[in-house]
Design a protein around this nucleic acid. Structure first.
Lengths: 197, 197
DNA sequence: ATATTGTTTGACAAATTTGTCAAACAATAA
DNA sequence: TTATTGTTTGACAAATTTGTCAAACAATAT
């Protein structure tokens, strides 16, 4: 038997992720993906049976990739402000690598008008625990008081949004790519300053 | 001649906007749009010739809808902090009505891998003028100093992102729709507080 | 060597989506 | 009335996208 030395399956999935998460081509066809991976479209069907099943795997990987490290950091034992700083750093790094991952998730959830994907998100309890910690730190005066959920939403928004909106913001603010990335680098400090009072 | 009493053309375009901007169904077909508008797909072709031309109109309307009121407010003469407050209010109101309008623009720009749309954005000068005003106010100490572009990005991010991410945030934070909208209402004040030092 | 198993692909078929056209229809003008 | 013009649609055609299948291929086991 020919054992898979090149691992085509992983190559196809990684290529799909690159196209969807990094390049933001949400309308990509199986042909687009196969071409980008340098394999025939039939290979894609051999490993994933259908476009739909490939997308389901990509979807689940997106959810995992988005939450896994995040939740791990939330549970970590360390100085609270330092934890927030690392959270912002992690979020920004991930978003630079995969700016459109969240959007992929959202659009996939919305156009199969079902909330079929809602399950298995057992991370909600970890988030809840972290929200409690935030609240406690607010009571202690480490950071200024507000609804902890809003606090988290602020962090996510400040990190994600500018990277997603890059094509639009580039012309609104009349920026080159180099200037844009420079601003994104500077953002880490700006966000920390804004969030940490 | 039969003058258009019902204005099917506008109905079709408005329906398309609703599907794309409000419902976030970025993969909607011409059939989806025609069905939702209660007309035949042929009518859509009668008025717009092709799917592509309809989308181009919708795209331009999205750009206009996003920037027109915004730029008008930026140019208005009024107390600076009040202007910022109204800016946040306008942004939030618009985003609640059309959460996925920006995403539609972005994905359309990205998957026709060209920057064909880049032109005609003559609003960049208005934005530049407003950035200058922000900088001046920072010098005067009205708000704390930072890169004015980053200041604007912060406002946009804090407004838009949570509404776009609603399907995901709902389960991450374990919220009902009612709870979610309540938080969105509360956000106006939270964002003002955060932005206006 | 041959057999066996897994991989890859081209050629074909099915399904979906988009585009075209002529006919039916409605409303007013003459 | 009939004619004219604009609107709407069903039926058909074309194009695109997805899915299937048998054959070719590669690598190892016997």
């Amino acid at each position: 038997m020919a054992i898979k030395d090149s691992n085509t399956e992983q190559l196809i999935k990684d290529t799909a992720k690159r196209i969807f998460f990094a390049e933001g081509k949400l309308h990509a066809t199986t042909q687009d993906i196969a071409d980008a991976a340098g394999v025939s479209r039939t290979s894609l069907h051999y490993y994933f049976r259908s476009r739909d099943l490939l997308l389901k795997q990509v979807f689940n990987d997106a959810l995992t990739g988005l939450t896994k490290q995040l939740y791990a950091l939330m549970e970590a034992e360390m100085d609270f402000k330092e934890k927030i700083r690392q959270l912002i750093d992690l979020f920004l790094t991930e978003t630079i690598a995969f700016p459109y991952r969240e959007i992929f998730l959202i659009t996939e959830m919305l156009d199969g008008d079902a909330d079929i994907y809602v399950q298995k998100e057992k991370g909600a309890s970890k988030m809840a625990a972290f929200l409690k910690q935030i609240e406690a730190e607010m009571e202690m005066g480490t950071i200024s008081k507000m609804d902890p959920t809003q606090f988290m939403m602020n962090i996510m928004a400040l990190n994600s949004h500018p990277l997603v909106m890059r094509p639009l913001h580039k012309q609104m603010f009349n920026l080159t790519d180099a200037e844009y990335m420079k601003k994104m680098d500077e953002r880490k400090k700006i966000i920390c300053d804004l969030i940490l009072k």
